[in-house]
Simulated assay, not measured.
Amino acid sequence: MCELLHYFCDCELKHRIEAIVSFSDSFVSKLQCNQKFRYNELMLALNMSAAVTAKKTKEFRSPPQEQINMLLSFSMGDDCPCPSEIQEELYEFHNQLQLHCGKTQTTKTL
């Protein structure tokens, strides 16, 4: 019986990890597409001053880790370059994951 329960727990964990990997792949792809779209729009608007151009292109000139931190720092409010739809998608996935984990933890304590 214990081996069977371990097997089911392993399967559940495997499915959770697969869901996280799948979501992450899709989420990062959407972030990159949005970032490329914003970059292309910015490059088309060549009538900006040097100071404004430098400020608006800072995100794209930063190292990758800094770029992702900037994109995911939702607390920046209106200055956050990540669109609200993509933010909501991440929040929704996080909530679903928490709900699912909460059910599992409740079951394990019984």
Rank of each mutant, 00 (worst) to 15 (best):
M1I: 07
C2T: 10
E3S: 07
E3G: 04
L4F: 07
H6W: 08
F8Y: 11
D10L: 05
D10T: 05
C11H: 02
E12L: 11
L13N: 14
K14T: 09
H15L: 04
R16Q: 06
I17P: 01
I17L: 07
E18D: 13
I20L: 13
I20C: 13
S22R: 13
S22P: 10
S24D: 13
D25H: 13
S26K: 11
F27T: 00
V28M: 03
S29V: 08
S29T: 12
S29H: 09
K30G: 08
K30N: 13
L31Y: 01
Q35Y: 05
Q35T: 12
K36Y: 09
F37H: 15
F37Q: 14
F37M: 14
R38D: 06
R38A: 06
R38S: 08
N40T: 14
E41H: 11
L42T: 01
L44W: 00
L44G: 01
A45H: 08
L46I: 12
A51S: 12
A51E: 13
T53N: 05
T53E: 04
K55Q: 06
K56N: 05
K56F: 03
K56C: 02
K58A: 05
E59T: 02
E59M: 07
E59R: 03
S62D: 12
P63V: 08
P64C: 08
P64G: 07
P64Y: 09
P64V: 10
Q65C: 11
Q65I: 12
Q65N: 13
E66I: 04
E66A: 06
E66L: 05
N69Q: 10
L71P: 01
L72S: 00
S73M: 11
S73K: 13
F74D: 03
S75P: 04
S75E: 10
M76E: 04
M76A: 08
G77L: 02
D78N: 11
D79P: 01
P81W: 01
P81F: 01
C82Q: 00
P83K: 03
S84R: 14
S84M: 12
E85G: 09
Q87Y: 02
Q87F: 01
E89H: 04
E89D: 05
L90A: 07
L90S: 04
L90R: 06
L90M: 08
E92A: 08
F93M: 03
H94W: 12
H94R: 14
N95K: 13
N95Q: 10
N95V: 07
L97F: 14
H100Q: 10
H100R: 12
T104E: 03
Q105L: 10
Q105N: 06
Q105P: 02
T106V: 14
K108D: 14
K108I: 15
L110W: 15
L110E: 15
